[in-house]
Every structure is written in structure tokens, then in C-alpha cells.
Amino acid sequence: MEYESWRGMLLSMPGAFEDFPFGEDAAVFKVAGKQGGRAKMFGLLMHRGGQLNLNLKCDPALAEQLRAANEQITPGYHMNKKHWNTVVPGLDEETMLAMIEDSYDLVVASLPAAERAALGWKGLVERG
């Protein structure tokens, strides 16, 4: 159930698409602002040890806070542990969507201005 829900949230981001560069067991969610632009990953959805995992980019300070407050969030599996979290099922939908949006925003912020404009991206949104 969570797989399809999380997949839908990831694909709902403007310009997002799904790719399988590591095989059919790992869905990589990327964004690129224009045709031919270099796509960047903002999510990795996979099963590991029979458990659904979603890797998401995160501001380092927020990543630590989220990990301390939620047992479902750990340092990113096979990722830079400072900038990526791994999430397992158990968080509410609102929290998941906020984390996905934050990951997307961090990645889109690093795209060239023309690509950000092509996505209609307005900038990072501060969350309380």
C-alpha cells in the first residue's frame, strides 16, 4: 500500500519521472527542468530485507532532528548520511509528503535557473 502511495507522491512533483538504472527492484525518481538537461535524483524507492525503504534528500540539521524524533527515519542507506535519510513505513501521509517536497526542492534548487523556470519552481518553502 505504501509503495503505490509514496510512488504517487514522488511522481506528483513537477517534472518528476521514474527510472530504473539499478534494475527493476529500485525505482529512482528524478527531475530535470528541460529536455536534454541532466536529471537529478530526489528519491529512491526499494525493498531491502523485505522492508520498503525510501531514500530522500534532506537539509543536514533537519535530517538529524527527524531521525531523533522518528524511529522510521535513519541515515540514508547507501547514500551520503549527512544529506540523505531512509524512511520506512509508519509515518503519516502529511509528513511523508512534506519530506518528499523538501527533497524535491533541495534538488531543484541546484538546477540551472533556466531549468528551474521551466518547472515553474518558485523556490524553497519554509515549513514551521
Rank of each mutant, 00 (worst) to 15 (best):
M1P: 14
E2P: 07
E2Q: 13
E2W: 15
Y3D: 04
Y3M: 09
E4H: 11
W6A: 02
R7L: 07
R7S: 14
M9S: 02
M9A: 15
M9L: 14
S12T: 11
S12W: 09
M13S: 03
M13V: 07
M13L: 12
G15C: 05
G15Y: 04
A16S: 15
E18I: 10
D19I: 01
P21Y: 10
P21D: 02
G23L: 08
G23F: 07
G23A: 11
D25Y: 13
A26E: 15
A27T: 10
A27R: 06
K30I: 09
K30L: 13
K30P: 01
K30S: 10
V31R: 08
V31N: 02
G33T: 05
K34N: 13
K34H: 14
K34G: 13
Q35Y: 00
Q35R: 12
Q35D: 15
G36T: 07
G36H: 02
G37W: 09
A39I: 02
K40I: 01
M41R: 00
F42T: 01
F42D: 03
F42M: 02
F42L: 10
G43H: 07
L45N: 09
H47W: 10
R48F: 12
R48P: 00
G49V: 08
G50C: 10
G50T: 04
Q51R: 15
Q51V: 15
Q51Y: 00
N53C: 15
N53I: 12
L56E: 05
L56D: 04
L56H: 08
D59S: 12
A61Y: 03
A61R: 12
L62F: 09
A63E: 05
Q65F: 00
L66I: 06
L66T: 02
R67D: 06
R67S: 01
R67P: 00
R67A: 07
R67F: 08
A68P: 03
A68D: 15
A69N: 10
N70Q: 06
Q72V: 02
Q72F: 03
I73L: 12
T74L: 09
P75R: 07
P75F: 10
G76T: 06
Y77C: 05
Y77I: 08
H78G: 06
H78L: 05
N80I: 01
K81M: 08
K82D: 05
K82W: 00
H83T: 00
H83A: 03
W84R: 08
W84L: 03
N85V: 14
T86N: 00
V87E: 01
V87Q: 01
G90F: 08
G90Q: 05
L91R: 09
D92S: 05
E93A: 15
E93Q: 12
T95Q: 14
L97D: 14
M99S: 05
I100R: 03
I100P: 02
I100C: 05
I100A: 06
S103Y: 11
Y104H: 03
Y104V: 04
D105Q: 15
D105R: 13
V107Q: 02
V107K: 07
V108I: 04
V108G: 04
S110H: 11
S110F: 09
L111C: 08
P112H: 08
A114Q: 08
A114G: 02
A114R: 10
E115M: 04
W121N: 04
K122Y: 06
G123N: 04
G123E: 12
L124Y: 14
L124H: 14
V125W: 00
V125E: 13
E126A: 15
E126S: 13
R127G: 07
G128T: 11
G128Q: 13
